[in-house]
Design a protein around this nucleic acid. Structure first.
Length: 939
DNA sequence: GGTATCACG
DNA sequence: GACGTACGTGATACCT
């Protein structure tokens, strides 16, 4: 039904419901696992009460619950203090927020939210649109900020008092008509939202003034006429502040909605889905009441707390077996429609795309598999071709038994984009990127790989095949058996349909079962917030960055490659001379034989290096550097190795990674690769582009901005040391950071009693090495090797360091103790890094101990920049700027020349404030910024 | 496919 | 008292 005259739109202020439910009810937790659910319970009750009351002449034809999303909106850009005095969300409410979305969906009511806009603005926009269409509107809320919308068919309904508010109701509250409410609010201000207003003027006085002068603008223009001297002075002096206040309270009727009112038509409740949700929440009373009302049987709930599932053990023999014969080959629209119906019935689906390549930027879609219920799955082949062994003709023709790709995607698109249907995939970023190229923007999404990562980081890797064996007791079909490997490898579109169905549908089946296994474990393991705030929202951010890519100048690289080739040829000739014979300069084995067997070189201390399982001489840079003091050959080898590394890894291979379609290089970030929470970059790795040497740094000159744009780099200054100072509570270090001192010099000063002004570079260098050593779980031997000093001296430094900063030793000891007790350590944001080896004996013990000390520091820093990245798209919206790369503590942007300052300001604010409000650091987070025509110049 | 080496934070 | 050590990654070239 198209919305128009005779229709009635109800807009429910979701956030108001949540907060009212939270504060009205005592803390209530789910029996089986302790998940806090009080607010969800109250929210469901309020929704049910609303539905019960939704009859008679005021009943809705269209309805939606509107939620706030995130805390940053365009109003924060107008005024950074907006809503700044609000308390942080209570910890036991935070995890309930996503559940209220799920509840709304379970009730089969449209559920909407938008980044950067408050729910109030969406409500305003919808109310305006509905009014223009000639329909009625009821805003279910008692928030006075919404009263400005009342009039011309728009009314409010206070859900608690069940009282309708019309023009007269607004007049009672504000003393003016709805269209002047913003004027009154602008003058009176609002302490709750931190809107300043005019000091000393409340609602009463404001209404009086507005009624006298007509409008706020008129009042401000004629402020001189006011008799009361104090009031007159305030209005004249605070004019700007008042005008700002008006912009803050004025709701935006032009929110760019991604849906229309027609999408909000009232839908029948889906008994099965609703009861399943209520049962999952273990709401016995509501479940029973609603089941009775809908005339169906209430689902059975276990009376006692369920035994926690053994996370590490595969399901027992009673688990549903995997049966390849049950998987369905979908080849026409009717069959697909049956799957879509089932998906809508249940509200979730696991999705897996099959393509011609692992590179999402080049991959062509070959087919899609789906699963809704464990054991049942389908595969929709779309672009399979004959296997090439048959006739010579028709090699490019499509194989039989496939539906038309456009038709299939047109049918699937509404489901995959439906906010009420959860899409589950293993490594969702891949499928998201592939389908984005076919015009489908999947949302909302869930990722079983990241569920495993949040739960099991440090225990094992998170590939689907491994997880399936480990948690489902089932070894899936290996892709190799279908496409082969090595030279004879073929692409998936050449796999016969019969095999493809078994393989692809199995993947969707496994994904669904992994989801069923992992999702309930989030709460038991207290990592729901990690998954919901640090993992899931990062997926689309990374997908966008990867699709953007970075422009790389092929000419620059090509010229460097040629120069390097010449340099290497010269060095090789020289090396053969020095060695007295020809040999493979790139072979450590041959090099070792020449230096130590043939030439008889020995290290300065007279010893010989011997290392490695193969028995070969070790020829690492540290050894060669020692040898370089007595012979030219190792010196030249070092030179050759540097140039060779730069050429093969960077100047040559980067050129091959330039995408012919975009002319840019698109890395792929692995979100679950590094145990600590860091990202990893592959194909190519853009997180290890040289910077430490002058020659290497020139490679960054090839990373350029488009004409008219510049590269902007922002990086956290000393973030790990700051986190250490905060976490270990080292007051002298905190103080040094607060005062903006050179932290290494300050450390040296503290350790050696040298005033900072008299600091020598060498003393500072040693203190710097110690500072880094601490982060890595320092040892005398390691520091000695790094500083090339006797081990006893290094140990002396460390002893003195701990003497001066005893809190650091305490922190280290406590971290290790925690790890031994719990089997994991955690970051300040709750990320868990498992430490299964921490109680091991033997040589592994030291390793595990140092990793345990390092993980919370490195991991917290990783969490901070993740939070910044997640907030960044909304923060820079509207600026001609793109976020391109992350390098652990640095973000790189490409920005139009005129917008550099604006970008730096906003991005820096986001980065420096990224820990808030979850963690309030005792030291400032400082972000340095630079810009230039290329990456080298931006540093 | 394992090992050694070296690029980054 | 001996042992073997800085933390976290990925790409490349050898060589079996």
């Amino acid at each position: 039904m198209t919305f128009g005259k005779g229709c009635h739109l109800h807009l429910i202020d979701g956030s108001a419901f949540i907060f009212r439910a939270y504060h009205a009810l005592p803390p209530l937790t789910r029996k089986s696992d302790g998940l806090p659910v009080g607010a969800v319970s109250g929210f469901c009750n309020m929704l049910q009460r609303y539905i019960d009351g939704n009859t008679g002449p005021d009943a809705a034809t269209h309805v939606a619950v509107i939620f706030d999303k995130g805390s940053h909106t365009f109003r924060n850009d107008l005024y950074d203090q907006y809503k700044a005095n609000r308390d942080a969300m209570p910890e036991d409410l935070r995890p309930q927020i996503p559940l209220t979305r799920q509840a709304t969906i379970a009730f089969n009511i449209a559920c909407e939210e938008m980044e950067n806009y408050e729910a109030d603005d969406m409500i305003a926009t919808l109310a305006c649109q509905a009014r223009e269409a000639g329909g009625r509107v009821t805003i279910v809320s008692s928030d006075k900020d919404l009263m400005q919308l009342v009039g011309d068919g728009v009314e409010m309904l206070d859900p608690m008092k069940n009282k309708r508010i019309d023009r007269e109701g607004v007049f009672e509250k504000f003393g003016v008509a709805p269209d002047r409410v913003v004027d009154v609010q602008a003058l009176a201000g609002d302490s709750v939202d931190n809107v300043p207003g005019a000091p000393g003027i409340g609602i009463k006085t404001a209404a009086l003034l507005i009624n006298e002068f007509g409008t706020l603008e008129e009042l401000l223009d004629r402020a001189e006429e006011i008799k009361q001297p104090k009031r007159r002075q305030t209005l004249i002096e605070k004019r700007e502040q008042i005008e700002l206040s008006k912009r803050l309270v004025q709701l935006d009727c032009d929110t760019p909605l991604t849906f229309t009112i027609d999408d909000l038509e009232v839908r029948e409740p889906d008994a099965e889905r609703l009861l399943a949700f209520l049962a999952e929440m273990e709401f016995r009373t509501i479940t029973k009441r609603i089941a009775d009302k809908l005339g169906v049987e209430a689902p059975v709930m276990q009376e006692t707390s369920a035994a926690p599932a053994a996370a590490d053990e595969p399901d027992g023999p009673d688990a549903l077996p995997f049966d390849h014969a049950k998987y369905e080959h979908v080849a026409d629209a009717a069959a697909l429609q049956r799957w879509i119906d089932r998906i809508r019935e249940v509200g979730h689906v696991s999705v897996d795309t099959e393509t011609t390549s692992l590179n999402e930027m080049r991959a062509e879609l070959v087919g899609i598999s789906l699963s809704v219920d464990a054991g049942a799955a389908c595969y929709i082949p779309l672009a399979h071709r004959p296997d090439g062994t048959g006739d010579l003709f028709g090699d490019d023709a499509l194989a039989e038994g496939q539906m038309d790709m456009d038709e299939c995607l047109a049918l699937l698109k509404p489901v995959l984009e439906d906010p009420a249907v959860l899409k589950i995939a293993h490594n969702m970023k891949y499928d998201l990127k592939v389908l984005a190229r076919y015009g489908i923007d999947m949302a909302p999404i869930e990722d079983t790989m990241l569920l495993s990562y949040a739960l099991n980081a440090g225990k094992h890797n998170h590939g689907m095949d491994d997880l399936s064996e480990r948690y489902l007791g089932h070894a899936p079909i290996a892709i190799k058996t279908l496409i082969g490997s090595g030279k004879a490898q073929r692409t998936f579109d050449r796999v016969p349909l019969e095999d493809a169905v078994k393989y692809a549908a199995e993947d969707a089946d496994i994904t669904l079962r992994l989801w069923q296994t992992f999702k309930p474990q989030l709460w038991r393991n207290r990592v729901t917030t990690v998954y919901e705030t640090l993992e899931r929202p990062l997926i689309p951010v990374l997908a966008t960055m990867e699709r953007s890519g970075v422009k790389v100048d092929r000419e620059v690289l090509s010229r460097m490659s040629s120069a390097f080739a010449q340099q290497m040829a010269g060095l090789e000739a020289e090396l053969h001379d020095l060695a007295g014979r020809s040999f493979n300069v790139g072979s450590p084995k041959q090099l070792g034989e020449i230096m130590f067997d043939e030439m008889g070189l020995t290290l300065p201390d007279g010893k010989m290096p011997k290392k490695g399982k193969t028995g070969a001489w070790s020829t690492g840079a540290d050894i060669l550097e020692d040898l370089a003091t007595i012979h030219d050959l190792p010196k030249r080898i070092l030179d050759w190795r540097q140039v060779s590394k730069l050429k093969s890894t960077y100047t040559d291979s980067l050129q091959e990674h330039i995408n012919p379609d975009t002319g840019r290089v698109h890395t792929s970030y692995s979100q679950a690769g590094a145990n600590t929470g860091r990202l990893a970059s592959t194909d190519p790795n853009l997180q290890n582009i040289p910077v430490r040497t002058e020659e290497g740094r020139r490679i960054r000159e090839a990373f350029i901005a488009e004409p008219g744009k510049v590269m902007v780099s922002l990086d956290y200054s000393q973030i790990e040391l700051r986190i250490l100072a905060h976490t270990a509570g080292i007051e002298s270090l905190r103080e040094a950071f607060r005062e903006g001192q050179d932290i290494h010099a300050a450390t040296a000063s503290e350790m050696f009693n040298v005033p900072i002004e008299e600091m020598t570079p060498d003393v500072r260098r040693q203190a710097k090495a110690i500072n880094f050593g601490v982060i890595y779980g320092i040892s005398g031997w390691g520091l000695a090797r790094n500083l090339r000093i006797p081990r006893e001296d290094a140990q002396g430094f460390i002893d003195r360091y701990f003497e001066r900063f005893p809190g650091i030793r305490d922190y280290m000891d406590e971290t290790v103790k925690f790890a031994k007790e719990h089997g994991y350590v955690q970051t300040l944001f709750g990320r868990r890094i498992n430490t299964p080896e921490i109680n091991a004996k033997g040589p592994g013990a030291g390793f595990a101990r140092r990793a345990a000390i390092n993980a919370p520091i490195q991991g917290t820093a990783a969490d901070v920049i993740r939070r910044a990245m997640i907030r960044m798209p909304a923060a820079i919206e509207g600026l001609p700027a793109t976020m391109l790369l992350q390098v652990h503590d640095e973000l790189l942007f490409e920005v139009e020349e005129g917008a550099v300052d604006a970008l730096v300001e906003r991005a820096r604010d986001v980065m420096q404030g990224a820990a808030m409000p979850a963690v309030d650091f005792a030291v400032p987070l400082v972000v340095d910024a630079g810009h230039g025509p290329n990456w080298a110049a931006a540093h």
